[in-house]
Design a protein around this nucleic acid. Structure first.
Lengths: 194, 194
DNA sequence: ATTCGATCTGACCGAAGGTCACAATACAAC
DNA sequence: GTTGTATTGTGACCTTCGGTCAGATCGAAT
């Protein structure tokens, strides 16, 4: 994980990873089959170590779906500074490998749902905070896509369409963006006010 | 473009591209500097060849923002079948290269806005069909992200099953998906009914 | 025809993913 | 402890492919 996080997928060399682990290059291929297999294992570990939506503190969860959403949006930057390696690996897996590996990654994401997005959406629907007139899967996909992309933009200039990094050092703007984003999301998938 | 579309980024070999063009490998590097440079050029061409939002037929544009949106959502599948190469190249650029190349791609997308998303959103705001209580950039980013992702899902359904979808391809649900997607988007960024 | 810069060429290089015959180790049976 | 077998580890070697460069070729100006 660390090596991929530091060097990217292409930039990471299997032999270096092996040397750091004190084993021979051949052993890495013995265990993981290929560089892609090695990365996939690292990716799964990285993503599994990240918090799921409903892992927010109990008092936040008690306040409901939207409190949890805003909690994580605001918390992302913090988490990344504390523990940037899994985020970086996840970013690389999402955008920086190749399509066949991306397919394996996606299959895994769909089957494992490591962030518990489906649970989270169902939690929101059960509380009457998320609309139920659209299939849960569609809502969950939308939340997945947008939250992932928004976090990625928040975190890295590589994927930022100018939202956060165009004007450096404007924390109040960042906060405004988070609020606007949550507002758009609330409008999209929240229950309509009567 | 064709070669990248058929083989992916990693799978495309510069020498093969050169041979197909009837020139020497060295010449490719002369012109484009590197494989990444070659791909970037192909990517720009591919995306530039795709229609912008407001390139929809005049009578559709006359019917407003949401008519244009639905027009393109429904038309995408057609376009992809007629002319899959640029879509595939765009997909590869979005997910299948590496982060440093992705950075260049993103810079270009932000500076060129090849789909004219900002124009399109401003068009919608001017007609009172898109909300104006949120910064245009945020709205445009959201539209960009979702439309891109939606399109990718359609492309990969045809070209690379299992890459994006929670569910296997179900043609009869296609229309429903498009409608739900448009509905979510309308809720998110449309003007609120009074 | 000559000159000279721009462009093209392909043999060559080096890096890195991947292989495999052999070595080392672990473990079971006696 | 010894022997036999299976599992795991090793690193020299192979192949592929992005990238380089010295020389060849082209083309416009004189």
């Amino acid at each position: 994980m660390r090596h991929f996080a530091e060097h990217g997928y292409q930039g990471a060399r299997v032999e270096d990873v092996a040397r750091e682990l004190g084993i021979a290059k051949g052993s890495v291929f013995q265990h993981f089959g290929s560089k892609a297999g090695l990365f996939l294992a690292a990716y799964k570990r990285a993503v599994s170590s990240l918090p799921a939506w409903l892992d927010a503190p109990a008092e936040v969860v008690d306040r409901g779906f939207w409190a949890v959403l805003v909690y994580w949006l605001e918390r992302t930057e913090h988490l990344i500074r504390e523990d940037w390696i899994p985020y970086r690996v996840s970013l690389i897996g999402n955008y920086g490998t190749d399509l066949s590996l991306k397919r394996d990654i996606n299959r895994w994401l769909v089957s494992e749902d490591p962030y518990g997005t489906l649970d989270f959406v169902e939690f929101g629907v059960a509380r009457g905070e998320v609309r139920s007139d659209v299939e849960v899967e569609v809502t969950a996909s939308m939340l997945d896509w947008l939250a992932e992309r928004f976090q990625d933009a928040l975190v890295t200039e590589e994927l930022d369409p100018g939202l956060f990094h165009r004007h450096p050092h404007q924390p109040q703007r960042r906060q405004a963006r988070i609020e606007q984003f949550a507002e758009l999301l609330r409008s999209a998938i929240g229950t309509r006010p009567a």
